[in-house]
Design a binder for these strands. Sequence first.
RNA 1: GGUCCCUUCGUCUAUCGGUUAGGACACCAGAUUUUCAUUCUGGUAAGGCGAGUUCGAUUCUCGCAGGGAUCACCA
Length: 515
Amino acid sequence: MTDTNQPAASSTAPVVRFAPSPTGYLHIGGARTALFNWLYAKGRGGQFLLRIEDTDRERNNPEAVAAIIDGLTWLELDWNGEPVSQFARAARHRDVAHAMLDAGTAYRCFLTKEELDTMRAQAEAEKRQPVVHSPWRDRSPDEAPKGAPFAIRLKAPRDGETVIDDAVQGRVVFPNKDLDDLIILRSDGNSTYNLAVVVDDHDMAITHVIRGVDHLTNAARQAQIYSANGWPIPKFAHVPLIHGSDGAKLSKRHGALGIEAYRAMGYLPAALRNYLVRLGWSHGDDELIETPQLIEWFDLPAIGRSAARMDLKKLEDTNAHYIRSADNAELLDRARDLLTLYSGDFAALIAEHDPKVMRGDVVLARNVRALLPGVPDGKTLAARFNTAGWNQFAAAIPGLKERAKTLPELIDGALFLVTARPLKFDDKAAKLLDAESKLAIAALIPKLAASTDWTPSALETVVRQHAEDTGAKLGKVAQPLRAALTGRSVSPPVFDVMAVLGRAEALARLGDQAA
RNA sequence: GGUCCCUUCGUCUAUCGGUUAGGACACCAGAUUUUCAUUCUGGUAAGGCGAGUUCGAUUCUCGCAGGGAUCACCA
């Protein structure tokens, strides 16, 4: 139903954008900002645009652009149209700056770098705020030396206040006396960030600017540029930043990793989205929220104003839920993809991390080294899963996914499928295989071999019967079996393991340990 | 330092003046289980401090303290 009485702003679908600068990878805070934008647009039939803020040529690098695009793609945040390069729009930015000059809302400033430095130094010496008041605001350009370089500055209001009516932060007031005449066009003729952002957002018809609070003061300056041009100001929504575990700004030390690191650690995109959106946004007591529901529920006013801290444990728990409910085929595909991503040596991965680090990918690397000494990296491991292996992996997934919090843990659980006889045993498994256990295995082998049916339930019947006959507890029989079959003390149910391995391989592995 | 923002269990959060302050993760204990995990039961744990408004403040106002963001011809 269309209500024709609705004001234009609320009856038109929103247009939002994610505008990262390509200085590094897509970090977790940026990913969350992108997610918020994406959810907002998706829930309202709007558009989600991508713009690369690459006006700083010296810091621009194509690899970073690729990393951002890869990250968004992996997170399954799709955008409308082609990514816009801000640098490609430089001519338009220049035009606007000159138009502002003509309109009298901007002026030429001939202050040199040195003059600026001394002004700031002097302000500091006098304990004044280093707000630059360019004398050229009121001087005629004719007074400048012929051909002297100049920057173009916004003629910002000096009295009154600039108000940002922010969807998250509320009404934020900035006294204009604290905002100096910012440079909109550098003396080399290139636009500065604030002008470029305003011109692009205006030209792209952005209705809602959803970004990190670190841009809040920029919003005031940008609002002045909008006003100077007589353009409508979009709705701002400045979302809090994500902090490290000690409350300080997220740094590498805190795991301010690029999104690709979370991928490597084996998190599912849907799980990461769920976790990320809950960091700062809530919907009552709901925790696990599927994406379609998220799209329906997400809204700006429910975003909190305080910074949140990353909690990997909770991410892990969320991920475990998503793995358990994931489609088996999808899980297998993702596990397979992940292995090809592990192109580096497992040895290097292990060396990089403290022995106490329990990250999924690191643990997997350690276990591969222990159990499969001949497998140096992910590619080789993937190759070990020949067609039969992948089929076995697929068959084992229902049991495996109950036990895995992350994808590498899932793969880790499947390692027993590709270990070659004679098996290597981890410490606990070796301990389980004492003389008594080996005798028990030897006694069990003929009974298993006699089973006409090689299915979990048939095998379970055989083993239970054997336990009953010998008066042993089921655990007493099952644990050595598990050790002999997998080389470890932990695995999916042993009967499933035997079934997946197949009659010949299972009996052979047991035979190796029989006394 | 100026400006702006924030402050409920260890962490993420609910609460829109009256609740035994709720949930989730983590942690602890127990039950189930062939291991592990799942699942289930129970438990420990919170409104920074000080005023004010009010019959009544976690909730509204002010102050203080603490934390954060930002102050470039970077983005």
